[in-house]
Design a binder for these strands. Sequence first.
DNA 1: AATTCAATTAAACATTTGTTTAACTTAAAC
DNA 2: GTTTAAGTTAAACAAATGTTTAATTGAATT
Lengths: 213, 213
Amino acid sequence: MEEAIMDYNQKQLQILDTAERLFAMHGFHGASVRDIAQEADVNIAMISYYFGSKERLIEAIFLKRVMDVKNGLDELVKNKDLAPLEKINKLIELFVAKISDRPYFCRIMVRAQATQEGVPTELIHEVKKQMYDLVKKLITEGQKKGAFLGDIDTMMMVNTLVGTSNHVIISQNFLKKVWNQEAISEEKFRQQLKERVSNHLKKLFKVVLTDER
Amino acid sequence: MEEAIMDYNQKQLQILDTAERLFAMHGFHGASVRDIAQEADVNIAMISYYFGSKERLIEAIFLKRVMDVKNGLDELVKNKDLAPLEKINKLIELFVAKISDRPYFCRIMVRAQATQEGVPTELIHEVKKQMYDLVKKLITEGQKKGAFLGDIDTMMMVNTLVGTSNHVIISQNFLKKVWNQEAISEEKFRQQLKERVSNHLKKLFKVVLTDER
DNA sequence: AATTCAATTAAACATTTGTTTAACTTAAAC
DNA sequence: GTTTAAGTTAAACAAATGTTTAATTGAATT
């Protein structure tokens, strides 16, 4: 939709970044265009001027980020010369990195799936479908090569991958508190978390998909 | 807070149920008190009259439901004479049943964790902590009995349990579409989903915690 | 029958909401 | 230097928001 190529100027990027943060923290209806304009340090009218409406603004955020994820997945498919399990590991690493590096968008995405907040549902379904198809392909490939076991609930494995990753990201504050790591910096903690959930999921998939431990 | 015993009359229950549904579908700020009053078939003023404010209304919903979950967990602890893995299975079954029977509240809960929507954060953290402690206790118990393996990331296992379950519930519409099960009734599909995610998680925990398959 | 108090209502309240307007500035193009 | 168009602004707009008010009903209690 709109134009395929999107080159935003400085002010537009300010608006997009601020809006992403505020939508994530307070929800679509909880973040007013006045709040966004003020925190982005632009006049209110500029939002309508550049993006048309609040709805079109969040759509722009989605388009910007979802394309990112899609391109990441496409890149993975090209890697032909990896062992089945290594491909899975690569996918896990890539997915976890993607969402833990963009925690604000992750929150928006989770909200969007949970509800109907005037967010482009088809876009979400499309990228989820792509994710599912990719995992299914990787698993059946591994099965044909005899590397993976036979009876695997592919769809549920995807749900575990996506659900666990998302949940860790949105529960960050809670985890920090439970682990008594409140002294550590936000950035460092996120890095630790990324590594830990990545390793956890790799072990999980290995032990489910193969006979080894 | 408030009174420990809460016996709501018919009208109050209508408000609570409708509010739970609308908060789940449109978010806290996306659902207006007018919408809630209209769909619950009561006068707007009755909401302030009974609950004081919109914030206190969602707090009442949380109190009502969270207590439910807590009581469920407590009951599980009493079962002393079960094998370690059977206890884990029981926990999975109970948790999945709890949230898939209350999909609206599940969505509210997910939103509340993802953001800060004037929702009682301490309440959520409290019940999450309880869940974590319970799983930790069950796992270390199994390890002491020699039934479970040694190196297990307990916290991540909890995240997998909660994250996967939540994600399946909030992605219901998508899953229905992907599986081409759009003809089936809402209720029946939810029942199938409950069984499937429950079995999936049981297998997952078994293969991770023990040496058997 | 009179009193009391909770329940219920339509209307009003002050804010806040997303969006638009019309005037003004800036800067590049001719 | 004039023209053109995009950028920028404060102000205004109608609509929707959460909450309160003041009046009325209902049904017990005295």
